[in-house]
Nucleic acid binder design. Sequence first.
DNA 1: CTGAAAGCGCTTACAG
DNA 2: CTGAAAGCGCTTACAG
Lengths: 355, 355
Amino acid sequence: MVASVELVAERAGVSVSTVSRALRSIPGVSAATRKRVQRAADELGYSASPAASRLATGRTMTVGIVVPVLAKWFFGKVIGQATYALREAGFDVLLYELATAGQRQRFFGTVHLHGRTDGVIIVALQPSREELESLASQGQAVALLGAQAQGAGSVSVDNVGAGRAAVRHLLNLGHEQIAFIGIRDEEGSTLGGVPPLERLVGYREALAEAGLTLDDAFEQFDENSVAGGAAAMSRLLVAGRPPTAAFVASDEMAFGVLKVLRQAGLEVPRDFSVVGFDNHELCDVVGLTTMDHEVAEQGQDVARILLEIMQGGQAANLARPARLVVRETTAPPRALRTATTAPDSQHSAGHPGNL
Amino acid sequence: MVASVELVAERAGVSVSTVSRALRSIPGVSAATRKRVQRAADELGYSASPAASRLATGRTMTVGIVVPVLAKWFFGKVIGQATYALREAGFDVLLYELATAGQRQRFFGTVHLHGRTDGVIIVALQPSREELESLASQGQAVALLGAQAQGAGSVSVDNVGAGRAAVRHLLNLGHEQIAFIGIRDEEGSTLGGVPPLERLVGYREALAEAGLTLDDAFEQFDENSVAGGAAAMSRLLVAGRPPTAAFVASDEMAFGVLKVLRQAGLEVPRDFSVVGFDNHELCDVVGLTTMDHEVAEQGQDVARILLEIMQGGQAANLARPARLVVRETTAPPRALRTATTAPDSQHSAGHPGNL
DNA sequence: CTGAAAGCGCTTACAG
DNA sequence: CTGAAAGCGCTTACAG
């Protein structure tokens, strides 16, 4: 049902070599012939067999995108943006979801990409040296998002700085009992990537700089989801000395935090402040204060960087900014507020505390 | 860097034909030889060149997934589930985002899939007869999610019935001024698919059955996003005769509706009820009452159906259920409530109405 | 059960 | 500027 070069050559009255050259805009074909070939190809609805060209050239014009999970806003956004940029450049994209350590092992332990893709974008996964070597031996160009590695391009965010900024915002509001809710990696794998860990470092740095002591009980980890955030917050609620605010390493977890807080009868930000991370598209709906790190741009950047590598360019390493987006989930802690705000404050000192 | 059949054949001391047969578990190879070949292949880290096998067999062991947009929960969920099922069956997945009418035209107007995929899953897009013919001429098996067509497998939901159920819930609570907020298709294309239209039909049917008259001003359409829902709700707020409830065709739009309501000082569900559609993972966070239609299952089903077709089976057409999930955004309308609830109702009849 | 050889449909030196 | 031919790395009748 689909034409071949021979058909086109016959119809245009030239050899297959000429058809091949004419259609791929290779110099050394007269304008007239080129036009004739083009028309014949159009009339036949011809499109070169990808398998045959790949076999002949060794190039696949396809890129792989590897993510730890598909059904999350962050990854959907990144994939969407990267895919768009890749398609513009004429590349197809093959999708790989590595949700478990087992899948990850199988993916890197097998030669699968060779002959399927020319390069691969790895999102939120820190590949080991062996994994990187496997990719290299398969002839893959590689670009990382949210990680860095020798020989690979990358785009990342200063997560330590961003974490510190988030906590500083809370400190500046007067909070001193600040918790951290982070992403727990599944079964010891690094599926969640390193950024979550860096955010914890930023949290600790900010507290240390403020002269506050760290409290293990204030650092809670759980799976990166609404349920995970809710579970972590629930643990904080029963702590001996309850926090008045929390920096949550992902917006989705922060949504869960907000939910638990509401269920516990605590009003945000009156009774508790929370700042998230990502600037998820639904932050606006719940008014979540968060750290924005331009996810869409990261997706485009990582695609551009991979494209450059595949064209023989240098493997660029890009650092992207993060910034605080203040909405409605942060405010001074209640104790402080009653002391500093106007005397006619509606929150009397005798207000029954919920925490 | 990657071994070829010849290398393996040499190492195992057999011909390439035998290697090929042994590795693909084709009968007619002695157990001993098979074992020897397998070992040689393992030692060399051999994996058949996909380009070469595709050229020789005509099969790609790859499936395409086409969605109107990637960065949305619904599509991420569907893709994730379908991808998992496909991978289990040994297929790779190629991703295509058709966000604009132009992209759609280019995709179907060109022979692109031929030689790249054996079949394609099309999500939330109603392909025309020409588009279907193009896919068929390219040798593609096709399965639809959220649409139906001659010769294609499909999984869909009774959207008319689901829409009717959603509205009936509102009617049963006593609402009589019920609005519909739907998805507006971009520039006359059917990128949004038919389900949103069917939900409108269900809405109208329910109202008609209840003996209520339809009001054009109560039917608002906008883009399928938080912003779109917010814009549509804003239009409803300035209507001459304001509604007391709305059935919103997607949860994301419903989130926008909730946001506008809150900004307008209206309390949900006290002043206004809303029921969404999808059972988005974040419904739980905001307490949105919605219609669940088992999105994950739909993703698995459509993959299974495509797999069956590619194995030469019948193109199955599956209908899936939808059900109401009551949370916290629906209640009787205020007027009714003050009249029917206990006399000591805290909402006095004289309460200043916001709508 | 195993091997030699043709063929899948392109691309690309090599000649002219 | 154009064409004949080899080659990319598999698979699969066809013989044996």
